[in-house]
């Protein structure tokens, strides 16, 4: 079973070398949880600001696949403590045991979907 530490490292590596993110760092947030922050090579959403850093929460699909609204809220409050502001959006990095990492946006509240 992958530790929280190695999970965060795996997401960090994937972001840097597969998705070409820069300034990717790992932070500790509440309850021993790790969060990764970095700069994507281009804006992730057309409404984003230039050089807007993105928070990524690493999660393992295999070792603990359950998720709850309460848990997601804790990620938001955890990052709010570091940033002094509750973020509008975070990203979850879901790590599978076959080397795949997938990323999903989680917006706070009900928002309009992106226009692709």
């Amino acid at each position: 079973m992958a530790s929280v530490e190695s999970l965060a490292n795996q997401v960090q590596t994937n972001l840097i070398h597969y998705n070409f993110w820069t300034k990717v760092k790992i932070h500790d947030i509440n309850n021993g949880l790790k969060a990764v922050i970095g700069l994507p090579p281009s804006k992730l959403d057309s409404n984003d600001e230039e050089d807007q850093p993105e928070w990524v929460i690493p999660r393992s699909l295999v070792s603990n696949s359950s998720i709850s609204v309460k848990e997601i809220n804790e990620w938001f409050t955890g990052i709010a403590i570091l940033e002094e502001k509750r973020p509008k959006r975070i990203t979850i990095g879901i790590v599978n045991d076959d080397g795949t990492v997938v990323y999903y946006f989680i917006h706070d509240g009900i928002v309009k979907p992106r226009q692709n």
């Binding site: 994507p40 997601i72 997938v102 990323y103 917006h107 979907p113 992106r114």
Partner: peptide
């Protein structure tokens, strides 16, 4: 209640 919206990030 509280709510969150989920969508694919477009990368990865």
């Amino acid at each position: 209640k509280m709510s969150f919206s989920i969508e694919w990030s477009g990368f990865g």
